[in-house]
Design a protein around this nucleic acid. Structure first.
Length: 256
DNA sequence: ATGACTCCCAGTGGGAGA
């Protein structure tokens, strides 16, 4: 079983790249972030024609998430249960016996901003909700654009980024608390190339210089951990013309 | 370097992203 997360930074712009990628990389489920589409504009027909069932939850201009899957997802949920949120950030569904949660975590903008306060509240609500989801769905995968670089080795220049958004102690503590629910960072189960990032700024030739952050993650529950056989970042789409600034992250599970 | 790029909605610029 293969699962993938990809922040596409506008599905309107990136749909052809997503379909090309899926043709070359068939997966059981793919969660997208930053679709930036209202639900009436979602390209359902094109995705279904490519052989995927799809659920989506979007809004104008910002945010927006989707869950593509070979088998139709069951028990689909949108956003964090019990957390009133005007922003479309979470979509969840059960695919082949695995609870798949796709999330676009708030950016937070700056540690002294109102958006950071929202990010902290969102993270707390997510944790409480994921705890209850785990209780009912032990086989669970939480993946998406976390907008958190968990450790200094996830940052191209930890001195430059120290205390900056994505790298604050508060964000990293929230990441550790998610892990403490009984999840594991699938990427770190394996030896990885040093300087592995999932995002590179569009500016400053950052991709060419490999100056990035690892902020897109796949967390799998302890029940699924023994089944994880690989986890990789696919840098290839970042080399496309008009790429997303994020690369897809792929996890492989040795289950049917 | 208070920038740089890309997207969006706007409307011939500005906010947001990370």
């Amino acid at each position: 079983m293969k699962l993938t997360t990809w922040n596409v930074n506008s599905l309107t712009v990136r749909l052809p790249q997503v379909l090309d990628w899926l043709a070359a990389n068939p997966v059981d489920a793919l969660v997208l972030q930053e679709t930036k589409l209202t639900d009436d504009k979602f390209p359902r027909a094109e995705i279904e024609a490519a052989g995927y069932a799809v659920q989506w939850f979007g809004q104008k201009t910002y945010n927006g998430v989707a869950l593509l899957s070979r088998e139709p997802a069951q028990d689909v949920a949108k956003n964090i249960f019990g957390f009133a949120d005007e922003q479309a950030r979470v979509i969840a569904g059960s695919v082949a016996g695995v609870r798949v949660i796709g999330a676009y975590f708030p950016n937070g903008q700056a540690p002294d901003s109102e958006k950071f306060v929202y990010k902290m509240a969102w993270l707390q609500a997510l944790r409480d909700w994921v705890r209850s989801e785990l209780a009912t769905h032990p086989r669970l995968v939480l993946m998406g654009d976390f907008n958190i670089a968990p450790e200094d080795r996830d940052v191209h220049d930890p001195v430059l980024w120290a205390g900056q958004i994505h790298c604050t102690p508060q964000e990293r503590e929230h990441f550790r608390e998610l892990i403490a629910l009984g999840l594991v960072d699938a990427f770190r189960l394996f030896e990885q190339p040093p300087k592995s990032w999932s995002w590179w700024d569009y500016r400053n030739l950052a991709f060419r210089k490999n100056q990035g952050l690892r902020i897109d993650h796949i967390l799998v529950s302890e029940a699924l951990k023994p089944a994880v056989s690989a986890c990789t970042i696919d840098k290839l789409p970042r080399k496309n013309e008009r790429p997303s600034d994020h690369a897809p992250v792929v996890v492989e599970l040795s289950i049917a």
